[in-house]
Computed example of a mutant assay.
Amino acid sequence: MADSPLSDSPYEILGVSADADAAALRLAYRRALRNAHPDTGGDSAAFHAVQRAWELVGTPEARAAFDRGTVGATPSPTREAWAPAAPRRPRDSRPLARSYGHPGGLTRQLYLDRIREWAGRGVTLADPYDPALVRSAPRDIRHILADALAEESTARALSTLGIAYTVWHDVATDAAGPGLPPKLDHLVLGPTGLIAIQSEDWGAPVALKRGELVGEALAGERPFRALAARARAIGRAARVKPTALVIVVPDDHAPEPLELGGSIRGAVVSLVRSSRLASAVREGIPGSAHLGGTEVMEVRSRLQAVVRFA
């Protein structure tokens, strides 16, 4: 199972509550295995997920380890993956992209505020990233943490673009309008254009349809319209125009490594898998305008004069 706050827990996959007794758990496993088996019309991915879920909670020892946030005698990587990462030295001496702002910072703060509010007034949370706590939180709170992790992952990928690129993270966009998020996740400037990027993890696949994202997990959201509004607000202040609008999602949530969806006000729309993002930016989003060296410097100066961080 994917290491995401939005991934279903073994109990959710088996269709039982976390406090189900051993008999109910075994009955649920048999039922889920029968329903998911490919020979009875089920799905192979769901079948393997049921088997993996049983490995994690099917015996008293494994279940106790899972509920403690450990697997066997070793600490679970889940907590380490969700908590803020410690700074790391670059592995080589290649120049990195110029980066400004704190990727995922505002989203992490929102998660901490919401998880503490949900826990209740006066309750002290020893570890807001404790796996058991995160799993028990409502989906909207887990979604916030998943988004923060997605933003940080995108920032790591963008840092490898090289010195020809400048990246701004968590750019404030108060002028984007009521009801919209108060920031643009990432803004990338380089020879392949000025690209506005939103990092997302909805916990389920999405697809492009007539220039907008669709998917059961979106619940009526129109992500590209919102991204265009935020990018337009920044562009208007700096008197520049974005050349591409990109939403990046986990690899298994997009049908293609890179999919185009037309354009919005001249900016090419694209849904990109996380692993494809850095190469897509270096190569240029197909159909989007490239910028000359002088033009890049001029746009950078204009943006530096107006960019504020959330």
Rank of each mutant, 00 (worst) to 15 (best):
A2Q: 13
A2C: 04
P10I: 07
Y11A: 05
V16P: 01
A18Q: 12
A18S: 15
A24K: 12
R26C: 07
L27M: 12
R30F: 00
R34K: 15
H37E: 09
P38E: 13
G41S: 08
A45P: 07
F47I: 04
H48Y: 15
A49M: 10
Q51I: 03
W54M: 07
E61D: 13
R63P: 14
A64I: 09
F66R: 10
R68A: 15
G72D: 14
T74H: 15
P77Y: 00
E80T: 12
A81E: 09
A86T: 09
R89Y: 11
D92G: 09
S93Y: 13
S93A: 15
P95I: 00
L96R: 14
A97G: 03
S99D: 02
H102Y: 12
G104P: 00
L106S: 11
T107E: 04
T107S: 05
R116H: 15
W118A: 02
A119L: 11
G122E: 14
V123A: 10
L125M: 14
P128R: 10
D130W: 08
D130A: 14
A132P: 03
A132M: 09
V134N: 08
R139H: 13
H143D: 07
I144V: 14
I144S: 00
L145I: 10
L145R: 06
A148S: 15
A148P: 00
L149V: 10
A150M: 05
E152V: 09
S153P: 02
R156N: 11
L161V: 10
A164I: 05
Y165L: 04
Y165A: 03
T166V: 04
W168R: 10
A172L: 15
T173G: 02
A175T: 06
A175W: 04
G177M: 07
P178K: 02
G179Q: 05
L180A: 02
P181A: 12
L184C: 03
D185W: 01
L187T: 04
L189I: 08
G190W: 00
P191M: 11
T192I: 05
A196V: 13
Q198I: 00
S199W: 01
S199A: 15
D201N: 15
A204V: 05
A207H: 01
G215H: 09
R225C: 02
A229W: 03
I234W: 02
R236I: 08
A237M: 12
A238Q: 08
R239F: 11
V240K: 03
V240Y: 04
K241C: 12
L245W: 02
I247W: 01
D252H: 11
L258V: 03
L258N: 02
G261Y: 08
V269K: 01
L271H: 06
S274V: 01
A278G: 12
A280N: 06
R282W: 02
G284I: 04
G287M: 07
E295Q: 15
V296N: 05
E298H: 07
R302H: 13
Q304W: 00
V307E: 10
V307W: 10
F309E: 11
